[in-house]
Design a binder for these strands. Structure first.
Lengths: 253, 253
DNA sequence: GAGCTTGGTGTATTTTGAACACAATAGTAT
DNA sequence: ATACTATTGTGTTCAAAATACACCAAGCTC
């Protein structure tokens, strides 16, 4: 992955720019053709995949760091990003600690350090993402959540944890604004929910409930051209959507 | 707070034992006499309060660190502890950075570092806690959530955030096992919910719903001795309770 | 035991969620 | 054109859950 000189350069840069011991990993969810996808980076010449991640600059708020990291990988700005958990097992990056141990002594070697990683998940509009690999990656691409490649370290666990959080979120927050295109049909939105929950939902009840939230605007024009009956197009009412994000969807107690 | 020699000693110990840049702060909730309480440490000779917190040892899982820290402050073991958020604003501990700047140069001064703090909240049984101040604190005591003293740094915000999380949690997880004594009456449990939610609940409906969760055992013997009608005593059915923690209380979608 | 307070339980009403059936539309095959 | 099919839109019924409310029981004070 790195030769010795590259390693030395990287470690020097890292040491002077980033906070020790802390990294950020992002689980980027996208939705396309009825499938929930995750963005993964493939390492050059290896069957190794990682989540897009990075480090926090010494004087940078962590939310900003997560946004910066994500922008580099997706080209997207102003992404819906949510911190969901810190992974702090001392052994979580053990395989990395020994990786370059022959090239640099531990006190100079950035990778020999223990790292806690702050997990963020992002919901993005699939078609607007421009997946961009970094220098050490062969590719940055979407993977079906149901058919993930071999993510290294604890990254598979991080993805699982992000998905659990997302499913929970669904119960008290609106979702979809960041995953759907501007305009979409009700069945398309339903498909998103069904995919996240891995569960069939009733068409009519879904629609009623969704409309009941008051976060959708129905367009005058139905979508034409497809086979079968032309469905209505909806878009999110951003104002109500934002409000629902804050207030939550249902009372609970 | 520290004189120069103490500071030097502390920084040396800290540097060799703890991870840089990372701290843990615990919001410890207790419940007593119808009031939700938070544990706070008061600094000697200052009108300054802090949450019980500490640092992560170099080879210690963060959950273990949180437990250790809490044990040192409360004497309690095996506490219900939940990570809820990382606070990572670069300025969040700004007041600390300058505190000892005349005593030690920044590169030796532990307190001049930026710290991210991992917020945990704990729910504990008030009567079993024996709040114990550490060496730098004048006192470790309970404060009414409605009447907090002047918490420094962003600790007031951390408390607020913990409470928000707790309220949300209430909707899909059972709560109370860690906050209530072994045996309690239904009105007492209701009071806990009302306090957390800051909201009156209907006596009968609360009871029905609570019993519906199937996590309570009613004792044969009602509590005697008090004035008025003797209420039944309940305890949590630990097995069902644990299960409800995992599965969640209501379906949602 | 009258009066007060607190705790236990039942019932009617409203609201919400789940299940289900039929009508409308746009293409396709004939 | 006409029948057919796949898909979407909508209404209605039934059951379950949440809500509101009223009454009885028990123990203490006086």
């Amino acid at each position: 992955m790195f030769n010795k000189q590259e390693l030395i350069d990287f470690c020097e840069t890292a040491r002077s720019n980033y906070l020790d011991h802390i990294s950020i990993d992002c689980v980027v969810f996208g939705f396309h053709e009825g499938q929930l996808k995750v963005l993964g980076l493939k390492i050059k010449n290896e069957a190794s995949w990682y989540l897009p991640g990075g480090f926090v600059m010494k004087d940078e708020p962590i939310e900003m760091a997560a946004n910066r990291i994500l922008k580099e990988r997706t080209g997207l700005d102003e992404i819906f990003l949510q911190q969901f958990r810190v992974f702090g097992d001392p052994d979580r990056a053990r395989p990395h600690h020994d990786m370059y141990k022959d090239m640099l002594p531990p006190e100079e070697n950035w990778f020999s350090m223990r790292f806690l990683t702050i997990g963020y998940y992002a919901l993005v509009d699939f078609v607007h993402v421009n997946p961009t690999p970094d220098g050490h990656s062969e590719s940055c691409t979407w993977y079906d959540l149901t058919d993930l490649p071999d993510f290294k370290l604890d990254h598979a666990q991080i993805i699982k944890s992000a998905l659990d959080t997302l499913r929970l979120q669904l119960n008290y927050q609106p979702i979809g604004y960041n995953l759907m295109p501007k305009e979409f049909t009700m069945p398309e939105l339903q498909k998103l929910y069904e995919t996240i929950l891995d569960k069939k939902l009733d068409r009519r009840n879904f629609q009623r409930r969704m409309l009941g939230f008051g976060i959708l605007n129905r367009s005058e024009q139905p979508r034409k051209g497809g086979a079968h009956k032309a469905p209505y197009l909806y878009s999110f009412d951003l104002k109500n959507y934002q409000n629902a994000l804050k207030e939550g969807l249902k009372g609970g107690w």
